[in-house]
């Protein structure tokens, strides 16, 4: 699977929520696009990831 441009080997079948937690993303501060489609936050647990997926995860830091 490709995440933010880098190849990541998916060992087990995981959903997006599990993947984000495992990689220590704070889900309140991110937006996730899978295969050029935005994934609404409410769907993170239902979205299963596969080898061919391309994920873009944008993390926001405070200030403005």
């Amino acid at each position: 699977m490709k995440v933010n441009g880098s190849e990541i080997l998916l060992k087990d079948s995981v959903n997006l929520q599990e993947f984000l937690e495992k990689h220590q993303y704070d889900t309140t501060k991110i937006a996730v696009e899978k295969n050029s489609e935005i994934i609404p936050k409410a769907n993170y647990k239902e979205v299963m990831l596969s080898d061919t997926d391309v994920l873009e995860i944008v993390s926001f830091v405070g200030g403005g």
Partner: peptide, 14 residues
């Protein structure tokens, strides 16, 4: 998006 707080930035974008 021109907010200050990171959670609000993410909320608006999502």
């Amino acid at each position: 998006e021109a907010f200050d707080v990171s959670q609000e930035k993410a909320m608006l974008v999502n």
